[in-house]
Design a protein around this nucleic acid. Structure first.
Lengths: 348, 348
DNA sequence: CGACACAGTCGAAGCGCTTCGACGACTATG
DNA sequence: CATAGTCGTCGAAGCGCTTCGACTGTGTCG
């Protein structure tokens, strides 16, 4: 193992000089810098992470807490995780992968052991038990003794965002956008095939916010909106669709939020002789890829997974460097019109 | 921040005693142990990771290198990653998430900075460029100067496994198992819908090995086997299926390896009036969940993602603790019969 | 032309932990 | 009863790095 001292010796300078060449925190003459850099390359030196963390009190590691359950949006999670990892690298950080399993304990462990400099949390619930540990110092509202603030960014939006930095798609606007589109095409009866019931029971923000957006805009536009949670998969979707058409036979518009209900829905509609988009229109909220690869290319609002991962890291790094404070970033949804939506059929 | 020294002071013992209580490397009297543990709890002490890594030369971190591309098997990757993370925690390790992006450099960086104690690599190619850095000391075959061995476990199987520890599903046996099943049901013309062409071009081991298994057993049993790569998604699958039925109209058995071709295939067969399983049988190689949720519950060989993640960690930890050496672990495939396969229809 | 700023370098302290050797107090052994 | 061994504890020496203050030499200004 090559150490700083060996590099220093090889370059005939002191250890501190090598350190300053590496960090750039003091000016170094061009000649010295070159000699040192040459020695570093020649010896294949890599600074020891532990020593660095100990001395500088920064680990250059970001913790990423992913949900343990794999019941939803797995590809989206993965995409976010990968975007986080690659973006972090461009800032010189590595990413530590935590699962939700440990819950708040993980936050405490990582914070107080100095394992990570900051953390990014995915799949935040509306009233997440980890939040108290993360909130910035709010005036007159100290944290429990011995707990210090951990710079953090949430991907998702809890109900109370004070002292928190959050990045998320604007799901309210997303819901509104879907409704707008269908209403503009003349649809009056719209069904919403939502996430699995468990997702609502957990009070996952995005699902509820989408619904709010759908409902409030739907109300404004005078649509008849029917929302049904759906576990996804073929059988569950079949049941959900049957119930919907039973209750509201005139339904001509569908908004689907559960990506694992998308393909089953299309197949079922086909089976029932309802052509897409001639008889019914379908708008999905799902990753681009799912929309494009579906058996009917789907009009959809994309889930900008990469963008969210990138933004989360950028904000966290800004915080770590003392720039920028708490902030809620809501990404504007974009609707892409594809082949699954069209004018509502003429009323009989 | 609470330090070891403060705990020691609080418990009225020396710092080293606290350290030994924590590590258990020397015997401690029950009374002292209790006092120390009490102080630790009371002060909310968490050892500083950097200091620990520096002094002990072990970081208690495992690096997990996931493929950058998200073109295949994303849920499987995610499941493996989560299994790795949770299993690692049970051994007292955390997991560092690396993307394939940096390639061999990431291996070098992590190795020589002491960031991680060992690594797990996913999506290994047959002749992966990272392998030379990982191979154990093979007799008479030293590593380049300055490179030291990094304890590693691969998930996947390269062509040359000398000096390597690998964990994978036995894809050869998997292929054979699929063919066996179809042959036993009387199918003579079997088509294989494989992974995307790019996967074969990269020489990803599992795809080629599955094919070998299919072909060799198919040959023994006298089947007519037709293999076609398929990018997945509806359109690509439609093209692939059309070609297959064009070339071999008598095809009654399908083996599908690309999970994103599964649902499209079922829809397309339905459309062409070929009933599953009455007219054609389908066997899939995919995660359990996909098989169960499909529009026809699929007879399948499951991809044991969790199992692979767990095993990889267990083996790596064993290595790190000096137990066990290089080894290739091939998990035996298991075929679950569901609704998508049945006796071949009588010949006209 | 002396005082002063500043760039460039060094030495040393110290980050919080592990671990080695030492040492006193006991217990077993012949 | 002397000797060896064992158990439980301590002190001190680092691990490899960052960073602070100090020092030297050069250029600048009044």
């Amino acid at each position: 193992m090559v150490t700083l001292a060996e590099v220093a010796q090889h370059a005939r300078v002191s250890a501190s000089t090598v350190s300053y060449v590496l960090s750039g925190k003091r000016s170094i003459s061009a000649g010295t810098r070159e000699r040192v850099e040459h020695s570093i390359r020649e010896l294949g030196y890599h600074p020891n992470a532990g020593a660095r963390a100990l001395a500088s009190n920064r680990s250059n590691i970001i913790a990423l807490m992913v949900p343990l359950r794999t019941d939803m949006y797995v590809p989206v999670m993965m995409e976010i995780a990968i975007a986080v990892a690659t973006t972090a690298r461009t800032h010189g950080y590595d990413v530590l992968l935590l699962t939700g399993e440990e819950g708040p304990d993980a936050v405490r462990r990582v914070t107080s052991s100095g394992l990570a400099d900051g953390m990014i949390l995915m799949d935040v619930e509306l009233d997440d038990e980890r939040l108290p540990l993360l909130r910035g110092g709010v005036a007159g509202q100290g944290r429990p003794v011995g707990e210090q603030e951990q710079p953090a960014v949430l991907i998702g939006l809890p109900s109370d965002t004070t002292g928190l930095t959050c990045v998320d798609l604007d799901f309210r606007a997303t819901g509104a956008l879907c409704v707008d589109h269908l209403a503009a095409l003349g649809h009056r009866d719209v069904a919403v095939i939502g996430e699995a019931p468990a997702v609502y029971e957990r009070h996952t923000g995005f699902a509820e916010r989408t619904l709010q957006g759908l409902r409030s805009r739907g109300g404004e536009l005078g649509l008849r909106l029917l929302h049904r949670p759906c576990a996804g998969g073929y059988d569950a979707t079949a049941v959900t669709l049957a119930r919907i058409l039973d209750e509201r036979p005139d339904t001509t518009g569908f908004v689907v939020q559960n990506e694992s209900a998308v393909e089953p829905l299309l197949a079922l509609l086909r089976q029932r002789g309802r052509a897409v988009p001639e008889d019914v229109s379908v708008v999905a909220i799902c990753p681009e890829q799912v929309a494009v690869q579906a058996s009917v290319a789907l009009t959809s609002v994309a889930l900008p997974a990469q963008e969210m991962g990138r933004r989360a890291v950028d904000h966290l790094v800004a915080k770590l460097e003392g720039r920028g404070g708490d902030e809620v970033v809501l990404l504007a949804p974009e609707l892409t019109i594809r082949a699954s939506s069209g004018p509502a059929p003429a009323r009989p």
